[in-house]
Amino acid sequence: MKPARIQARKKEIRQYEEGVILSNVQTGYDRKIVLQEINLTVRMGGFLCLLGPNGSGKSTLLKTIIKYLPVSAGRITLLGNDLSSLTPKDIARRVGVVPQKLDTRFELTVRELVMLGRYPHLRPLSFGDAEDGRIVEESMAAVDILHLGDRLITEISGGELQRAIVAQALTQTPQILILDEPTTHLDISHQIALCELLLKLNQEKGLTIIAALHDLNLAARYCQEVVLLKDGKVFAAGLTDEVLSEALLEEVYGVRVRKERDPFTGKPYFTYYTKNNLCSPPAEYEYS
């Protein structure tokens, strides 16, 4: 990237306190409304987590922020710009996305895959110069997949592929990184590794992170802020420790939840039980 472009970007970062502002947003597929009355602010440099049961609208919200789904009412502001005025390319320069799963039948190599992340920054007919190559190497180094560069994406493991996709999102040099249930297909070691990576990116590079997660414990351990969605509406939002209370979670998920603290980190962790079932605490048990 040329110095002038870096300057411009730094200026843009400084300019905005809020990364994304959603005001009274309503959205959905075709005629079915999935989300409504969404009011939300994502501050720059934050690590925000979207939680909620299946079908609560987490993925839909993320797709709306990157304009993949149209906004039927309300307004979204992305880094100070009205979303409707931005082209997909404008958005891709500012926001990187890591989907749950990459669905492709074509045998690209890992390096080719990561390089595609530079697309929104390239001029027409250009296939990238040395600077773009350097960014690709850096991104691959950041997620520790440099040694996989020449392997085919159809031949590597799910965890490796997921890291490659993160690397691709990083080559977009985004200010905001969006992840849609990135840990779903990963085993626990890869789950932790990915979250550690995100935390590192967030703390060292100031990258704003918005992640939809299923795992309450991961969310509780890594995220600063949490947004709880239920039936297409924001049920609660705020600092992680405050929002994730036993009562709220029980209301949102319809299960009994026990909140405890991890003696090493001091962060909360959760155990959940269905009500009146074989594997649940006795009925007379009272939560603290």
Partner: peptide, 25 residues
């Protein structure tokens, strides 16, 4: 087609990913 060669590359990743990388589908 020559002008859109890179867009074709992105389409290989599926429509959603292509959009995420800035393709006007």
């Amino acid at each position: 087609v020559l002008l859109y060669l890179r867009d074709l590359d992105l389409l290989l990743l599926g429509e959603e990913k292509a959009h995420q990388l800035g393709v006007d589908l």
